[in-house]
Design a binder for these strands. Structure first.
Lengths: 355, 355
DNA sequence: CTGAAAGCGCTTACAG
DNA sequence: CTGAAAGCGCTTACAG
């Protein structure tokens, strides 16, 4: 493998000039630049990362830290991050943090000290882990959080608007004619759960519909909790005509329960999820849901990191990047429809008055 | 951040001795070793990877290359690989190769030249890409392939026994009493498709059952192809009582088609998939399928890489590691059952004679 | 616009 | 069992 010395010799310049050309620094005569570029190309020269990293201030490494999120989540984030990294000449080092939240700090310290990444991307739920956040600050490693909860919102982050998305979902159901809408909450320790519930409530209020608190079920983002909630909801005297589950896995549980109970979806029951997981389009009927712009969020995160990590601004001040909120997409599929005319609504219910 | 010099000064030894201790080299007095370890611990010293990499022969980096496999596949492989890497003091650099198979070579060259990973893990389908394999050989980078097709089987690799797994699936159906078993093939350009089909044929032959070639459908591993195949199969005069789809996505398609046509699963039709994707346990009825030991395959791959990358053997010869075949698991769930007694079998069929 | 020197923080060969 | 020297392949700060 050729080194910078060989390129310099072949081109008849100093290694410093080669370095300047390869790093796109100014103050090189166009002809010199071209010459160096040509020689480097001929020799198929690639600067060695470890040498650049040791000599310079950058490591050209971005860390991606995660712990047990859904496979789909990691995969999408990762794809966005690796693509953007490659464009910028960076590389992505991933680290799946061990399950024991206890020793997450040491694990991180080790990784940061050994690798000295120029930035780190943190995904839920570890982007809300105080120990992780503390380790990042202690080592002064720039980081960007993806979809953080309340904890992380004071740090640079990129997210979507969960509240607004949940409003849109609710509006869709209302516009189809649904009034008895059940809502299955997500895990209570995740911020997204609260935001999605808030969106649901806001949309209902905006349409002057009262939220029937008995139609609010506690779930935990798992399939089984959606299934259990649906069993309970569908065996009521006056079952809801629509169920808004806080994520797709729970919505799939609702679907399974409906199948088992002989409740037709979407004729007898509309079902909506959240996430647009792969399974959402693989089940029958395909699930109406919300697509998170995960790839876009990841590329934005890399951009934010590189902006920070790049040359300091003219005035030498590093502005902490402002949060970015990316657009989501309501994906309407086959699991939603207008409620059947001859519903089994309870007489005198709020819904009846509206109908 | 402390450097090796500071540790050496504090401990009153040379940096070479510190280096020896940290690398677990022999020829250090136990007391000296302990002293250095204590000082290093107090200073919270971590050797910088770029310096070790530049000075030494190892980069402590393992590359994981993939291109567009299922999210679940990457996630499982990656989790196994990162965990094992951490244990060994290594780090995992992932690279999602661009979609254009054309410039995969240059992308790889760049990555290998810049990073100089001590080894690379290749996943399907790029572990069968001749250009990729050529780039690996050209740079003499050790690599281990995960589940390669015929192309890659001459290189070090780790895989499961697809043929045997498919036999087991088929045996299960036969033992339940099925005789009219349909098989949906996978994408014809993937080796796993052929292996799974072979397992099916072998099991049928072992039970002296004839394979009805009209019950063999061409699929492509996608949901839609399974759905289409099922529509065709279920509208036959004498529909099969069981369908063996070469992967879960197609099996989910079969499930969807069955639902739509009012065919009860598993009462009227048993359905089996392959992969144990997350959706497999999220649909109703939950899918009987085969779980690939992906995490285990990944840790084995890292082990094989580290063995090669480690100190050369006593005789200085680097033995190419032998392939490793890891155990899979047949996961029996709710989508399989004995066929209904009053089947709609065609009179005089082979199945009738056996029944 | 260009270059000679020093140095990043380790490991490698070598010497004792 | 231990260490002084050289060097890995780049970038940084400086000088011209």
């Amino acid at each position: 493998m050729p080194t910078i010395v060989e390129v310099a010799e072949q081109a008849g310049v100093s290694i410093k000039t080669v370095s300047r050309v390869l790093n796109n620094e100014p103050n090189v005569r166009p002809e010199t630049r071209e010459l160096v570029l040509r020689v480097a190309g001929e020799l198929n020269y690639r600067p060695k990362l470890s040498a650049r990293s040791l000599a310079g201030a950058r490591s050209f490494l971005i860390g991606l830290l995660y712990y047990d999120p859904s496979a789909e989540f990691v995969a999408r984030v990762q794809r966005g991050a690796t693509l953007r990294c490659r464009e910028a000449g960076y590389h992505l080092v991933v680290e799946a943090l061990g399950s024991a939240a206890r020793d997450v700090g040491p694990q991180l310290d080790h990784m940061l000290a050994a690798l000295r990444p120029d930035g780190v991307i943190l995904t839920p739920p570890i982007c809300d882990n105080p120990e992780v956040l503390a380790a990042m600050e202690a080592t002064r490693t720039p980081c960007v959080l993806i979809s953080p909860g309340h904890q992380g919102r004071r740090l640079p982050h990129v997210r979507m608007d969960d509240v607004h998305a949940a409003e849109e979902v609710t509006n869709l159901l209302i516009s189809l004619g649904h009034r008895q809408i059940a809502f299955i909450k997500g895990a209570s320790d995740q911020a997204a759960s609260a935001w999605r519930l808030r969106g649901f409530r806001q949309a209902m209020r905006a349409h002057e519909l009262e939220v029937d608190e008995s139609l609010l079920c506690q779930g935990d983002f798992q399939f089984a909790s959606g299934e259990a909630a649906a069993h309970q909801l569908l065996s009521r005297r006056s079952p809801p005509t629509a169920v808004f589950a806080s994520n797709d896995d729970m919505a799939l549980g609702v679907l399974a329960a409906a199948h088992r109970l002989g409740v037709q979806v979407p004729q007898d029951l509309s079902v909506v999820g959240f996430d647009d997981s792969p399974a959402a389009s693989l089940v029958w009927p395909a699930l109406t849901t919300v697509r998170q712009p995960l790839m876009e969020m990841a590329t934005a995160a890399v951009d934010m990191l590189l902006e920070r990590g790049g040359r300091p601004t003219a005035d030498g001040v590093q502005q902490p990047s402002a949060p970015r909120v990316l657009a989501h997409e309501l994906v309407v599929r086959a699991s939603t429809a207008a409620p059947a005319k001859r519903g089994r609504r309870a007489p005198g219910s709020h819904a009846d008055r509206l109908a």
